[in-house]
Nucleic acid binder design. Structure first.
Lengths: 329, 329
DNA sequence: CAGACTTCTGCAATCGCTTTCAGACTTCGG
DNA sequence: CCGAAGTCTGAAAGCGATTGCAGAAGTCTG
């Protein structure tokens, strides 16, 4: 049997109300009594039942986090950030992985929404109307996607990509290719837009190599198109794809960076372990997780009072070994 | 305002009790009434409040999952398995990452334990007494560690490692090194034991290269020792370390597998993307997650009636490009 | 057709906690 | 020394569900 507030009350010789107050609103209770209660609670190893508390306060002390695919190294980092910040704020985290399936996602959301105070949603391709419906009934924060007035945490893709293009230009490249991620993904659209404006500004040619699944295989699939296009440099939708690209380029006999320069986006762990190590636009993933929790918590405290329910996190080009001077042919 | 059971009752023109029964024990209620209730619930979008239900039934419908480090690719796979199986069984999953810190772990456990029906614990180095205390108060299943009578899901390391050694022997290797993980890790001990008995049986020399952090850096750190030892083949505690090893070996000018063969354990995604691709002992990580949930659920149903609260999952050597014929010098 | 069973439904208690309200006791100004 | 204000504490209601118990209606048997 778990110890309840009544046990503590009996042990301390006070009423349950006093125990409750001593624990959650000290100051309302005499310091001597409080001390006695705290010691009794300690002695009995009492931990309040959150469900019961939630029932009356309307707050569960839980957050929900929905990610499309935990196997993509981007997300574990994010989750860790969310986790860590949530724990600091004394919240527990429900995690759900939708397996890239928008339908499963809706289900998850419906089930989770009832059990949490707020939801952090990474749903690059969920339908906009679903998101609106959801936002109407739940406090939620979106990560890596901006949509309407829904609170969000995104990365400043433009800046990072501008840095990447500047880097390539400085190395003498004039032709750059884009290896695209999923057509419907918000960040894919955001990134290609940023890349286009950066290459335009720099007077570089841009070759867009369609859409590929955001996985290693996607990068492999894109490689031959890239080679055929004759570009000297390429920016990929994310690091995983860039690594796939790297592998296939090598298999085709191209040397990176001597023959072609490759840049990824994300800065996942593996990108510093590949060979050559990958130049990439680094995203502060854990920080995004923390920021999402912060935003969510402030929304919970003052539902309408948050001045700017949008956070944009800085990005930073990390130059490693996969970029080099443009080949002179 | 969320719709409660009373709303549904009013809408359907019955009492709350009837609604409750119609939803959770149909058959006890007239089919016509039931139909009416279900439609009303549907119309109002009613979802029972799990906290309230849990309060009286004593079941939360939640599971807890504690992992040491989500950044290690082994764990996301496990988490996905847990997730998927839990969802099928209509359970939600609390995830906590202890950041490899046993102290944080105890805290997490204490907080989570109150909110879940059972706990899945991946705690390679938690103190044994802590685990016992925990097991006494909570239903829990350990993954990747076997200890006392605590229910567990582990991999059959012996078999996989035996396959690996047989593979090396067949390639003509006589000297093999072990790149060890954390000294206190259960699976590290289990694996070195398995390796030792396999090499003994095969009449091979075994060189044990101490203990290293189970990360990429650990593999890098071990590489020079390995080179100095003069072995022709090496088995690493896990894939991440094997990849680190691969990188450093190349930097030192050794060719894999011509000069030295490398085998990992885990079969993480990256091991099929490295160059050379990594021969590895494949573990069915997602399946382990599912098995852990299954075991946990059956323990919840019949606390003492589970015949064999231990599952051992098969392992399988995956031969890829990092192993080859032993060099003849 | 009365009495015994079934079958179905509603009342009310309860889970563990928070919170309003009011009472008991101090303290203090007049 | 009395009344008002202030400080603490306890009794009780209630959050949203489940469930034992009992009554109402219907069915069956002799």
């Amino acid at each position: 049997m778990r110890t309840t507030i009544r046990d503590v009350a009996r042990e301390a010789g006070v009423s349950p109300s006093t125990v409750s107050r001593a624990l959650s609103m000290p100051g309302l209770v005499n310091s001597v009594t409080r001390e006695r209660v705290l010691r009794a609670a300690q002695r009995l190893g009492y931990e309040p039942n959150r469900a019961a508390r939630g029932l009356i306060t309307g707050r569960t002390g839980n957050l929900g986090l929905i990610v499309p695919d935990l196997a993509n190294p981007f997300f574990p980092s994010l989750v860790k950030g969310v986790q860590a910040r949530a724990r600091e704020a004394d919240y527990a985290v429900f995690l759900a992985d939708s397996d890239e399936d928008p339908a499963a996602e809706s289900d998850l959301v419906r089930v989770l929404a009832k059990q949490v105070d707020g939801l952090i949603l990474c749903s690059p391709r969920g339908r906009e109307e679903d998101i609106l419906t959801l936002a109407a009934t739940t406090t939620l924060v979106m990560v890596n996607r901006r949509f309407g007035r829904v609170p969000s945490v995104v990365f400043d893709n433009s800046d990072g990509i501008r840095q990447a293009v500047a880097h390539l230009a400085a190395l003498g490249h004039h032709r750059v290719a884009w290896v695209g991620g999923p057509r419907t993904s918000w960040s894919n659209r955001d990134r290609i837009r940023a890349l286009r404006s950066a290459t335009d500004a720099a007077g570089m040619d841009l070759y867009v190599a369609g859409h590929f699944p955001p996985q290693f295989e996607g990068g492999i699939a894109a490689a031959d198109l890239i080679i055929a296009s004759g570009v000297t440099s390429v920016v990929a939708y994310n690091d995983v794809m860039a690594l796939g690209l790297l592998g296939r380029l090598r298999d085709r006999g191209l040397r990176v960076p001597q023959d072609i320069s490759v840049i990824g986006i994300d800065d996942i762990q593996m990108s510093s372990m590949s060979s050559p190590t990958l130049t990439t636009v680094s995203l502060t993933k854990a920080q995004a997780g923390r920021a999402a929790v912060d935003l969510l918590l402030s929304l919970l405290e003052q539902p309408d009072g948050v001045r700017k329910p949008r956070r944009e996190l800085p990005t930073q080009l990390l130059v490693r070994a996969s970029t080099g001077v443009a080949p002179t042919d």
